[in-house]
Design a protein around this nucleic acid. Structure first.
Lengths: 323, 323
DNA sequence: TCAAAAGTGTTATCCTTACACCCATGT
DNA sequence: ACATGGGTGTAAGGATAACACTTTTGA
């Protein structure tokens, strides 16, 4: 099927190596005022990135270098997202191959220092249909769903129509199916395929506005973001990564609000507390917070001990609040 | 901390691009006679691989090309595992950067055709301690565990000793902890760090034999294998990927034995059947198998319909048999 | 008849979910 | 007093795990 690569293992050393340009791209996430935010540069439509170069000791240190230089932000937790080949770019005269390695990083906003031309944007500006904390948002109900169904029914043959409706139904929880917050990537793909959003510089008509109001990004950066959101929403359920986004000490409600911000849905307070405490993820600091309104709350800190214990199941299941 | 990368975004186009060699590496898995096998070339210590080159339309098609050429095997299901930078290699006189992108692929053995210099090896030849289908294997009890504890206790300071014992305990299920089959990578890392296994051409003493009897591999191929095993063991629990390894039609026991081969542990028959059937993963073909011994078994086929339905939770939880 | 594998039924237990309710503080 | 958030108790329902038991074939 595919054209065969030439050359056997033997002469691999002999042929001129096919060299490739490698880019590192970072999706840096923090939660500020109960909003999940990503770090952007330029017109808030580009993720920090830069080429993997000789002076970098490793992929991760290269990434840290670029992000720190472009945004002034040091990175803590990092995990790899995905590696993909870009559409061929044209170098100086000859064909140029390029691949991108994307990463997910978690930090706290405060650590910001040099405010170069960069900023934090709520990820729901790019994915307004992903925020279900106040119920299904009207963008989804009034704009997305009707247009998606239109698109599905506009397919040539019956098989495609059925397949499209099926995908839309599972991705958006139609026909009585439950909403699944982890399907962010599938939803983005649907919306993109249906032509309801456009990206900058992707050879599509730049004059026609997006049919669904949402902020676009350069190249496939928004797709990388969707991948990262999905990964994070899944991961908080089985690994204690939320704490990378929390300050040293926090109240249980702050923790809950952070998880809700990421998941895009509300969770049940009493059950959440029990879950967190019984798993021994946190311990009391002994102090209390003199919050806005209400009875003072105990302050907690993350029990670093569980990280040793970790590599094991521990995590935060989500006791969702009923809809 | 890390040395900063030079150059700002502006002059990225101007500087000579740092070009890199990109290798594609495949971990191809099949299950034959209830043994999980990987496809190897050479002395059974190398995974199929080759450079990503200009003529490849995409990363995946490049991978397919190399595997088919080196082993004669066409690939079906493929998923990306991990991308890492190799230790610097020396090119012709100048420093050469290289990265490897590893993939996990699932097939059936029968599809084999050209038997070039390649073969199938049980993955338990490389990881004898991972097979708990007949209880904890003696390699682990008699060799690994004592030596690991020796290693842990041999650490200089008390903190390191504690940390090592802790890691060993969770990874191998010591001190009453349960065995977790998904921790394959953590176990390999421990065993490697403790110097109980060695790999070919990694600058370590090649005359000293491995302390734990097991087959070694070239460079970091065995580590890639550990990553793939862990990924697969985790994935079969929430996505119906086992069926990529099954023939068109099969009995429920065959399905069970395949899952057991991958997981490295036995599962409870009645509960497994119920699980599979109630999730509507399979449907009867109407025929029965005239097996080796015993009452004839109904044959089933995978319900492809669930793949449309998919992107959703469906999968195969493992109702383990008690130890 | 026995071995071997195919199947079915039933129970105890735990985890999750839902929800009702009381406590402490500021305005 | 009441609004706001902190915090506890409990009961119903579903999923899982454990295991006992019946059925159908070939040797």
């Amino acid at each position: 099927m595919d054209k065969q690569a030439k050359g056997t293992r033997k002469d691999r050393a002999a042929v001129k190596a096919d060299e490739v340009k490698v880019d590192l791209i970072a999706l840096v996430v923090a939660v500020n005022d109960n909003e999940p935010c990503v770090l952007t540069i330029g017109q808030a439509d580009t993720l920090p990135s830069g080429p993997f170069a000789l002076e970098h000791r490793s992929l991760q240190s290269g990434l840290r270098g670029w992000v720190e230089q472009q945004t002034g932000h040091p990175l803590g937790y990092i995990e790899q997202l995905y590696t993909f080949a870009d559409r061929d770019r044209i170098g100086s005269g000859r064909q140029q191959r390029a691949i991108s390695i994307s990463y997910l990083a978690l930090t706290r906003k405060e650590q910001a220092a040099g405010s170069r031309k960069c900023g934090w944007r709520s990820w729901y500006e790019y994915f307004p249909w992903e925020d279900h904390r106040s119920g299904t948002p009207s963008v989804e109900l009034d704009v997305l769903r009707p247009r998606l169904i239109e698109w599905a029914d506009g397919a040539g043959d019956a098989a495609t129509r059925r397949e499209r409706r099926q995908r839309a139904a599972t991705a958006f929880g139609l026909d009585g199916r439950p909403w699944n917050e982890e399907l962010t990537l599938q939803r983005y793909e649907l919306v993109y395929e249906a032509g309801l959003v456009q990206e900058a510089g992707s050879g599509r008509d730049p004059t026609r506005p997006s049919l669904v109001p949402s902020k676009s990004m350069v190249a496939d950066h928004r797709r990388i973001m969707a991948t990262g959101i999905a990964r994070l929403r899944s991961k908080i359920k089985y690994r204690p990564v939320v704490f990378e986004l929390m300050p040293q000490s926090f109240t249980l409600l702050q923790l809950q609000r952070t998880v809700e911000a990421l998941a895009g849905r509300l969770i049940n307070k009493p059950n959440f507390r029990r879950l967190v405490e019984q798993q021994e993820l946190v311990e009391e600091t002994g102090q209390t917070s003199l919050e806005t309104g209400g009875r003072p709350a105990k302050l907690f800190r993350f029990r670093r001990a569980v990280l040793d214990d970790s590599a094991v199941v521990l995590g935060t299941r989500l006791p969702l609040a009923r809809a």
